[in-house]
């Protein structure tokens, strides 16, 4: 179990390294990009931050033009010249089209979801276009995710949901967002990498286990009577009701008074669960995972619970808000960037 957890840990470490290089897009290039297109919450595309270059189809198209011109020269055919020039002019006009398709667009993070390690985390990106003609055939995507088509054609803004696989707890920063278009002919690609300062909180991957055995409380007036059966603690006596255990009937009393009376035993559940980091098995990450599992289970069971971490204690509470707070602490345990 421990060794498995260890390898798991190493894997997480290595993918983390990859992630770092991915999101930063390589040292020098990344640094250059950071100067050229500084991060911001809302980034508007313009000639300052959009790159444009022919695609492979574009270069093949150029080859076609060369062949056509050679044919036109050898056949001394004005109209074949014309075809070549028309295609060349279309290519030039396409440069304007392709660039225009991105120019003026604004990108910002509309909303980011939360998730657990090994889950896809949702980022909603809002793309807004200026007034004027609609934009189509745009694709956006994070370096580690799938690209999505964006159309800002009839409306002036649209929101696109993108998903990124979370591979460690803490802040998931998907890095620079790729915005690209091949519209209208696919001969040119206009693209940019923008950092819209997107981040999402990733909780530890939950490990589920049974909630630790009930702890009896010495205080009778606290908590709730849970399990009248099979416990040792005597509570009181009352009249027999059908369904009571035969062995709990006080026969002596029956002999005396002809009344059936039963003894009641019970244990009182400590109403506030306490999940303690120190009490759990495994290394730090495994302990956090177990705590996550426990928190989820307790919430599902609508139990009040508190968590004790080495550096802080979360007071008991119940419900989704409390769970969010707990998960946030677990996700950010040992991480300074809060």
């Amino acid at each position: 179990m421990d060794s498995a957890a260890l390898t798991d840990q190493q894997q997480t470490g290595s993918s983390l390294k990859n992630k770092e290089s991915n999101t930063r897009l390589g040292g020098r290039f990344g640094a250059w990009l950071d100067r050229r297109i500084p991060p911001g919450q809302r980034i508007t595309l313009s000639q300052r931050n959009v790159f444009i270059f022919p695609t492979r189809s574009g270069f093949t198209f150029g080859g076609l033009l060369v062949i056509l011109i050679l044919g036109a020269i050898n056949y001394q055919n004005s109209l074949v010249h014309g075809v070549a020039f028309l295609l060349g002019s279309i290519f030039v006009v396409t440069i304007l089209y392709t660039f225009r398709n991105l120019s003026g667009l604004s990108l910002e993070l509309a909303q980011s979801g939360n998730g657990f390690v090994d889950e896809d985390v949702e980022f909603a990106v809002r793309v807004t276009r200026p007034k004027g003609k609609g934009r189509e055939g745009i694709q956006i995507g994070w370096p580690d995710g799938f690209k999505q088509w964006v159309e800002v054609y009839d409306r002036e803004a649209s929101v696109v949901k993108l998903y990124v696989r979370a591979d460690r707890r803490g802040w998931l920063k998907p890095g620079r967002l790729l915005v690209e278009t091949y519209f209208p002919l696919g001969l040119l690609r206009a693209w940019t990498w923008v950092d819209i300062e997107a981040r999402a909180l990733v909780y530890p991957k939950p490990i589920f286990q049974s909630i630790p055995a009930t702890q009896s409380s010495r205080h009778r007036d606290e908590g709730e009577l849970i399990d009248p059966l099979g416990s040792d603690d005597f509570v009181d006596i009352r009249e027999y009701e059908p369904g009571d255990r035969i062995k709990n009937i006080i026969w002596r009393s029956y002999a005396r008074s002809d009344e059936l009376v039963v003894k009641r035993y019970a244990s009182y559940l400590e109403p506030r669960l306490w999940f303690d980091f120190e009490d759990l098995a495994g290394d730090t990450e495994e302990k956090l995972s177990r705590l996550t599992g426990l928190a989820l289970q307790a919430t599902r069971a609508e139990r009040e619970f508190g968590v004790r971490l080495p550096d802080r204690t979360i007071d008991p509470g119940v419900g989704e808000t409390h769970l969010d707070q707990v998960l946030r602490e677990l996700a950010l345990f040992g991480i300074h960037d809060r």
């Binding site: 189509e136 055939g137 088509w149 159309e151 519209f183 209208p184 002919l185 696919g186």
Partner: peptide, 10 residues
């Protein structure tokens, strides 16, 4: 060629 670069559903 234009159709190749448009969203095909719309």
């Amino acid at each position: 060629m234009v159709g190749m670069n448009q969203l095909q559903t719309r």
